[in-house]
Amino acid sequence: MLNARIKLRHLQAFLEVARQRSFARAAERLAITQPGISKAIRELEENLGAALFERTPQGVALTQAGLTLLRHAGPAMRALEEGVAAVGDTHRGDRWLRVGALSTVESQLLPEAIRSWHAEPDGQNDVGVNVVTGSSAFLLSRLRRGELDLVVGRMTEAREISDLAFEHLYYEPLMLSVRSGHPLAGIAPLEAERLGDFPWVLPPPQTTLRQQVDSFCVRHSLTLMSQRLETLSLPVSRRYTLESDAIWVAPEEAIAEDLAAGRLCRLAIDLEAQGGSVGLCFNASMEASLAREAFCEVLREVSARRGFGSAT
């Protein structure tokens, strides 16, 4: 039974501080004073008999007890919010599926799955899909808090996945590509040292995809030039690559159409041996909805039908 001294305001304060990593920002978001939110956290910690946050140079961080509470309180609060919202939605029939999408599935898998799902004659076409993009750390933290129903993409290397459930779909390799007519296009074999003479388009630091790039550079003693573009945006990366001599680090799915059309060329050097595992990530503490289960089945079917990546 829930401790009667633990109130809804305590959990709201805890979740907002966990989200913002700052008492001041959390207080601002909740429209209360900073002493007020500090008092709420202190009362919650006293009721639980455990410290939930510790101060760091970057703000505040969750303790192990805080992480444990977050794993359960986030989905529980979200379920409560959905229950309240569902009462109002009953008259309108509003239903939503919240999906986190990494760049490895934005171009083909996810759009095709949504089209297939909405085309099915089993009532799913009245369920809206809200897609949130970003880094794996950002999306998995939202999934852990119950703010997303699932996350799709390549994320098995992410540290944040440790306490979440992951289902493998296929392997997706990262590739090095350049525009047609690039000085390195068509050279085989290609020496890694030549890659340092051109600007790169690559994922930002602290992302799982960037870890693979950094590992490649270490293996080949390669130093990248300072002129580079760091982004997770596929449209920005694509346009910059097509109009410059940049080398683009991209998932195979993102460049497949341009490769087939001859607009981009794959360089004759492998960034990684097999590729990363693309799949579905869930918060096991959240009750699975029928909509989520149906959509996941469509994702599995599309993956198998299109033969994405290597065989599973």
Results as ranks from 00 to 15, higher is better:
Met1His: 13
Leu2Thr: 10
Ile6Trp: 05
Arg9Tyr: 06
Gln12Phe: 06
Gln12Asn: 12
Leu15Trp: 03
Leu15Pro: 03
Leu15Val: 02
Val17Cys: 04
Gln20Val: 01
Ala24Arg: 13
Ala24Ile: 04
Ile32Asp: 00
Pro35Asn: 04
Gly36Ile: 01
Ser38Thr: 15
Leu44Trp: 00
Glu45Phe: 14
Glu46Leu: 10
Ala51Asn: 08
Glu54Arg: 14
Glu54Met: 14
Pro57Thr: 04
Gly59Ala: 11
Val60Arg: 07
Ala61Pro: 11
Ala61Phe: 05
Leu67Gln: 11
Leu69Pro: 05
Ala73Thr: 14
Pro75Asp: 06
Arg78Leu: 06
Leu80Asp: 07
Val84Tyr: 08
Ala85Gln: 12
Asp89Cys: 11
Thr90Gln: 13
Leu97Met: 03
Gly100Trp: 05
Val105Ile: 06
Arg115Gly: 06
Asn125Gly: 10
Val131Lys: 11
Ala137Pro: 06
Leu140Ser: 04
Arg142Asp: 09
Leu143Glu: 02
Glu147Arg: 06
Leu148Pro: 01
Leu150Pro: 00
Val152Tyr: 03
Arg154Tyr: 06
Glu160Leu: 10
Ala165Val: 13
Glu167His: 11
Met175Pro: 01
Met175Gln: 14
Ser177Thr: 15
Ser177Tyr: 11
Ser177Trp: 07
Gly181Ile: 08
Gly181Trp: 07
Glu193Trp: 07
Pro199Phe: 11
Leu202Phe: 08
Pro204Glu: 09
Thr207Arg: 00
Arg210Met: 06
Asp214Leu: 15
Ser215Ala: 15
Ser221Cys: 13
Thr223Val: 15
Gln227Lys: 12
Leu229Asn: 05
Leu232Ser: 01
Leu232Lys: 02
Ser233Leu: 01
Arg238Met: 09
Arg238Thr: 15
Tyr240Glu: 04
Thr241Phe: 01
Ala246Pro: 03
Ala246Ser: 15
Ile247Arg: 00
Glu252Pro: 00
Glu253Asn: 08
Ala256Trp: 11
Leu259Arg: 05
Gly262Leu: 05
Arg263Met: 13
Arg263Pro: 08
Leu267Thr: 04
Asp270Leu: 11
Leu271Cys: 06
Gln274Met: 11
Gly275Met: 03
Gly276Ala: 03
Gly276Val: 02
Ser285Met: 14
Met286His: 07
Glu287Val: 10
Ser289Val: 06
Ala291Asp: 12
Arg292Cys: 04
Cys296Val: 10
Cys296Glu: 08
Ser310Phe: 05
Ser310Pro: 00
Ala311Asn: 09
